[in-house]
């Protein structure tokens, strides 16, 4: 006979095994990455981070080009995606007619689950030609004096093409989480503002967004995670040249696209492989650092002011 207490303990034990297995998988992954990148870390030291050259035959490896490419694509995609997805999330939750909300929500959720290669193919077929024939000539004609917007090769492929497509991939994630976070704002809090003669915009600005900020931030982190690690779509669009992007329209290379393109033959040479694994380690660190910094900023912005339980769970 099991006593009730024993049942509870058993259940708790099983659950802790699940949680511990996730943690150990993470730690093992980190350990393996550290182990394989160790030779490169020893050989190239900290300067690996700011050396620009990447020359496998001469065994000269520097990560800067790929870090720059990765950060450029990620942040440009986020800059485009955040305001758009806020708009979509706010519209869906606060303004959208009831019967359309369900349809739009489903479409957005489907969009979030589309395999990235499809986005990549769409990018090659639609975005790249559009950039080449319309956008790049326009910027070349009117803004060529701004270094950041200079068009050097009018080919369509490059940082901007990759960023636009990555934006479409993270847009549904951030938008649907924004919508869900707004939906979880207690109705009574919104009613309080409405009853005071607040407009819907006042309510969103002063009540809903502050409440939902934590959740929305979670959505941005998820979007960042997908953007920073996005591989296939970027491989198809970024141009895959190991140069540091100086303009929105220049080609580049990201860490993940480099690994996808070259890791199968890098494993033949241990130090080459090790350098690439070290790049993977950097990618991991970038996500961790961004996450931690983001959390801290958020805590400072809304620190202590939020306690949903004060609303009796409502």
């Amino acid at each position: 006979m099991f006593t009730l207490k024993y049942k509870d303990d058993l259940f708790r034990f099983i659950l802790s095994v699940f949680v511990l297995s996730v943690i150990s998988i993470f730690l093992i992954a980190v350990a393996i990455i550290l182990y394989y990148s160790y030779p490169a870390i020893m050989k190239y030291g900290i300067s690996f981070l700011w050396v620009k050259e990447w020359n496998p035959p001469k065994e000269i490896f520097g990560a800067l080009t790929f870090i720059a490419g990765t950060l450029a694509v990620t942040f440009i995609a986020l800059i485009f995606a955040i305001p758009l997805s806020f708009g979509i999330g706010i519209f869906l939750q606060e303004y959208c007619p009831h019967f359309l909300r369900g349809i739009f929500t489903v479409i957005i959720e489907i969009l979030a689950g589309i395999p990235s290669v499809i986005f990549g193919v769409w990018g090659v077929l639609v975005v790249v030609p559009w950039l080449r024939t319309t956008v790049e000539p326009f910027f070349d004609k009117h803004f060529s004096y701004i270094p950041f917007l200079r068009v050097s090769e009018n080919i369509g492929y490059g940082i901007l093409a990759a960023s636009i497509v990555v934006m479409f991939m993270i847009l549904p994630i951030i938008a649907s989480i924004t919508k869900d976070s707004l939906a979880s704002v207690p109705k009574i809090a919104k009613d309080g503002a409405l009853a005071m003669g607040a407009t819907q915009l006042d309510v969103i600005k002063d009540v809903s967004l502050p409440y939902a900020l934590n959740g929305i931030y979670g959505g941005i982190v998820l979007g960042f995670g997908r953007a920073v690690g996005e591989t296939i779509a970027v491989v198809l669009l970024i141009g895959n040249q190991a140069i540091i992007p100086k303009s929105l329209f220049s080609v580049g290379y990201t860490i993940s696209s480099l690994l996808a393109n070259t890791f199968t033959f890098a494993v033949i040479n241990p130090i080459y492989a090790s350098a690439e694994v070290e790049l993977a380690l950097i990618l991991l660190l970038i996500s961790l650092i961004v996450n931690i910094i983001g959390r801290n900023i958020l805590d400072r912005v809304i620190g202590g002011k939020f306690n949903r339980s004060q609303f009796g769970g409502g």
């Binding site: 009574i188 809090a189 309080g192 009853a195 005071m196 003669g197 009540v207 409440y211 809304i302 009796g312």
Partner: peptide
């Protein structure tokens, strides 16, 4: 409606101060 409510205060069952 917005104008109307400015002349009518309302207090609810659950205290609902804003997160401010």
């Amino acid at each position: 409606v917005v104008e109307l409510r400015r002349d009518i205060g309302m207090v609810f069952q659950n205290p609902n101060p804003f997160p401010k």
